[in-house]
């Protein structure tokens, strides 16, 4: 049966993540589809890898070290790599929860059929958000392997980089899905790019927060990717502190709010 391989993948994923009822049926469906388009994620993974190779290695030659947490000095590539790890988790989650969800919602009418079964609006939201989170985490996992191969991991704390990627994926997929339910057409997706690109460039990805004037520091500190970058950087560099609990809490709260909004919106749109 064609579903078996997809189900096997589900068994490998920690059951704790999937302890959310019928939503996992939608993940099973998405995995069946993804089997046929396995090459699609390649572009998403390639992007941060290219950044790591070009900027990390290129600029790393010019910038020998950068001020890290607790007044330490860190070589450039290991400084940039965790930030790119965080943004790869973000990318994977956002692609899935914006374009793909929009297509299923407005054109393929997948959820209309799903909601005629015992599945409810909350199951749809949870299923899609967790699936997008898994895609983001998969991107991040490949990236972590790259980092290890290039010697950019400098602490055993890095084993928690994947759980951190799960939180980043959750936060962005939940808010991405909530935003997608408000989209009126494909052109609205330009707004997504408009939000993602500056976040990618300014979230202390390439240089520390102290470089900015104070007002810009405050703005950056309010955006989610900054918290994701700070968290992964603490873990792979090994400077874990109390602040990281705050970063994690920010991401989890963002995920919870996004999920609640997404569920409500699916109900309003489809269960009229």
């Amino acid at each position: 049966m064609s579903g078996e391989r997809a189900t096997l993948a589900l068994r490998v994923v920690p059951p704790a993540v999937l302890g959310f009822g019928r939503g996992r049926r939608l993940i099973e469906r998405n995995l069946l589809v993804a089997r046929r388009t396995w090459w699609v994620p390649l572009s998403g993974i390639a992007e941060p890898v290219f950044y790591l190779l070009s900027i990390g290695i290129g600029i790393g030659k010019l910038v020998t070290s950068i001020p890290g947490p607790h007044h330490s000095l860190i070589p450039y590539a290991p400084y940039v790599a965790p930030a790119l790890l965080a943004s790869s988790a973000m990318n994977g989650a956002v692609y899935e929860c914006t374009f793909n969800v929009y297509f299923k919602l407005k054109y393929a009418k997948i959820y209309d059929a799903v909601l005629a079964t015992p599945m409810g609006a909350a199951d749809v939201a949870r299923g899609e958000v967790v699936y997008a989170m898994l895609r983001g985490t998969a991107y991040a996992a490949i990236f972590v392997v790259m980092m290890a191969a290039l010697g950019d991991i400098r602490s055993a704390w890095a084993v928690f980089a994947l759980p951190a990627a799960v939180m980043i994926g959750l936060a962005f997929s939940a808010v991405g899905m909530a935003a997608t339910t408000y989209m009126r057409g494909w052109t609205d997706f330009d707004m997504v790019q408009l939000a993602l690109l500056p976040m990618f460039l300014f979230s202390t990805t390439f240089y520390p927060l102290s470089t900015y004037p104070r007002w810009l520091q405050v703005v950056v500190e309010l955006t989610p990717l900054y918290h994701g970058v700070s968290l992964t950087r603490s873990l792979t560099l090994g400077y874990v502190g109390v602040g990281d609990v705050g970063h994690a809490a920010y991401l989890v709260a963002m995920g919870a709010v996004g999920l609640a909004v997404a569920s409500r919106r699916i109900r309003t749109l489809l269960l009229r």
Binding site: M1, R25, R29, L32, V33, R36, A108, T117, P118, M119
Partner: peptide, 29 residues
């Protein structure tokens, strides 16, 4: 439920459509 407009899953095969839909009902494989 047979809706007015077919809402089949065009990204899946005929057999997979039945399979996935059955899974939405929590039916064992």
């Amino acid at each position: 439920v047979v809706p007015q407009e077919d809402s089949l899953d065009l990204e899946l095969t005929v057999r997979e459509n039945l399979y996935v839909y059955g899974r939405y009902f929590d039916l064992p494989r």
